[in-house]
Design a protein around this nucleic acid. Structure first.
Length: 555
RNA sequence: GCGCCCGUAGCUCAGCGGGAUAGAGCAUCGGCCUUCUAAGCCGAGGGUCGCAGGUUCAAAUCCUGCCGGGCGCGCCA
């Protein structure tokens, strides 16, 4: 139960009585400063102009007509005309009791109930190992999918890839060239080929399996190289993702759109709407009618450009009946995706169901200096290397703690050297600490009373923690609806901080009375649950214990 | 030239569906372990919220222009 919902009808009522209901919406917000109460409204300030009266006077009139739902809430007028509401400590302790009874369902939302969502992310073509940008995309997409699941959506996680285009052909040629070189032939490497060590590795595999049987440069042999490359790359991509705790329900192959006639169908539909025209032997789509630029869909060679299957793909997703379609893409896709959505919209589809989450690029720094190459491999850093060095929790958290729209600087020294001051560990530590308290209790034969009365939790640090925990559902909702996981990460940090502060001020085991002990167990249990569920949404472990850093011996 | 994103403390960034004294982490300085994990807590210093206009009772937040940085703008994906 949200506090806002508790008060809003009464505020609305008061506004109606003074005849101002039409002029303003009865919005309530949480003041930044605790001294300003638990909720506040600025309606009186907003009404000052239309009513042509001083805001304070209006506030007084509203308050006079306000019938408060219970003795638990007090009202005051402050500053130029803010109306502040303050709930009693007793109210919050009883709220804690109610929320604790909800168990793991606390915070779960129903806004997506009965709805289906599709989240597409990673979607890297199998031409090489994943890099840092893919990592951010993967962490974001996976967390958004988790958030939507938490909101009640039935979520499909999808990976879209192309294994037929120029890029893949080039991969095959690169592998073939390395293969020939391994056989001792002088064979030129394609100028724009893939240079990574993995190409050598794949080629070595071919030598082992085929010997020199593929030496002759035929379409068939190149196809084997290409296929081998795809298999290898996909296996590694999936392994990397698995390391991050990521999997997909559907791997959607771009090529299938051609095979199933969906590309032709899209061309047909566009043609029927008069959106296609020929020029210079190519087929163009007239996006300029929608304030955009015309684009080639079919090249003069007869091949489609990538935009064509992209349009067919989005049409397909819309046809599959999802209520919500989320595309998680790097910033370089802006122009393309807008073209695609415009085209699909021109075909008469409701594109408001499509939500594009664009994230900016990632730069890796070490001590403030930009790192372009991995020290070990001498090549650009792969996601795998980062995972190996830092572990999945740190990597995921670093990718998630910034807003998708901002450029992300991944500071290696902070992530690596200062594992002890790392923001991830701060959250995990709070959880481990709570687990430790329950372990300690159990060892001493203390059984926490999960149904204990919590009304004695009236100290400021206890109240602050309760007030924060109450906000969990609303904060998750905001993160989900804005597709901004960093909001949840920030909230969890606040919870951890409030718990640590509470912990230092009060004892649980050894509290002043048994009543306090059991009430605090309830509070600790709820904190633990919020941290565990919140971390689970971010895809980060909530460890039950953490190693204590070895203390240096003092002499 | 056009489009999208960013410009907030020494550094990295929250806040930006307008609101009352602009926050966090790191870094710096000072306190706190004979009791449930000090990967912690408490405190201090540090900011013309890029600049200039505009809208508003109220602007870091909305609008316009400019400056600075990133990414796109292909019959590549």
């Amino acid at each position: 139960m949200l506090l806002e919902a508790y008060l809003e009808p009464h505020l609305r009522n008061a506004l109606e009585q003074i005849g101002a209901a039409e002029l303003v919406t009865p919005e309530l917000e949480v003041p930044k400063i605790p001294e300003h109460g638990d909720l506040a409204t600025t309606v009186a300030l907003q009404l000052a102009r239309p009513l042509r009266r001083p805001p304070r006077q209006i506030a007084e009139e509203i308050v006079r007509h306000l019938q408060l739902p219970s003795e638990d809430v007090a009202v005051e007028i402050a500053g130029p005309g803010f109306i502040n509401f303050r709930f009693t400590a007793d109210f919050f302790t009883r709220l804690l009791r109610q929320i604790a009874d909800l168990g793991d369902t606390f915070g779960q939302l129903s806004i997506g109930k009965g709805k289906r969502a599709n989240v597409e992310y990673v979607s890297a073509n199998p031409t090489g190992p994943l890099h840092l940008g893919h990592g951010r995309n993967a962490a974001l997409g996976d967390t958004i999918a988790n958030l939507l699941t938490w909101c009640g959506y039935e979520v499909t996680r999808e990976y879209y890839f192309n294994n037929a285009g120029n890029q893949m052909a080039l991969l095959g040629k690169s592998i073939y060239a390395r293969y020939r070189q391994l056989l001792g032939d002088e064979y030129p490497f394609p100028s724009d080929g893939y240079h990574g060590d993995y190409i050598w590795e794949i080629a070595r595999g071919l030598v082992e399996r085929y010997g020199d049987a593929l030496r002759e440069e035929t379409e068939e042999h190149l196809a084997i190289c290409r296929q081998e490359g795809e298999t290898w790359c996909f296996a590694h991509i999936r392994q990397t993702l698995e390391r991050m705790g990521i999997w997909h329900d559907i791997y959607f192959n771009e090529d299938s759109l051609y095979r199933d006639g969906k590309v032709d169908a899209v061309l047909q539909a566009l043609r029927e709407r008069g959106l296609l025209y020929e020029q210079d032997g190519a087929l163009w789509i007239a996006l300029s009618r929608f304030g955009r630029q015309d684009r080639v869909l079919v090249k003069s060679t007869g091949e489609g450009t990538y935009r064509l299957p992209d349009i067919a793909y989005h049409r397909d997703k819309l046809e599959r009946g999802y209520d919500l379609i989320v595309d998680v893409l790097g910033a370089d896709h802006i122009t393309t995706i807008e073209d695609v959505i415009t085209a699909v919209g021109a075909l008469g589809y409701d594109t408001s169901r499509i939500k594009v989450v664009l994230h900016q690029f990632v730069t890796l720094t070490e001590g403030g200096q930009q790192v372009k190459m991995s020290k070990r491999s001498g090549k650009s850093y792969t996601l795998d290397e980062l995972l190996e060095e830092l572990g999945p929790d740190v990597v995921r958290f670093f990718f998630l703690m910034r807003a998708p729209s901002t450029h992300l600087e991944f500071e290696l020294e902070l992530a690596r050297q200062q594992t002890e001051v790392n923001p991830v560990f701060y959250l995990q530590y709070a959880h481990a600490r709570i687990c430790s308290i329950f372990r300690y209790a159990s060892e001493r034969g203390i059984v926490p009373d999960e149904t204990a009365d919590t009304r004695c939790l009236i100290h400021p640090s206890e109240q602050a923690l309760i007030k924060l925990l109450v906000r969990f559902p609303e904060r998750v909702r905001k993160a989900a609806q804005l597709y901004e996981p960093q909001l949840l990460a920030e909230y969890l940090r606040e919870v951890a901080q409030a718990f640590h502060a509470f912990y230092h001020e009060h004892r649980i085991i050894g509290a002043e009375t048994p009543e306090h002990m059991h009430a605090r167990f309830v509070l600790a249990r709820l904190t633990q649950r919020v941290l565990r569920n919140g971390l689970a949404i971010l895809g980060i472990q909530a460890p039950e214990r953490m190693e204590r850093a070895a203390e240096p011996l003092l002499h």
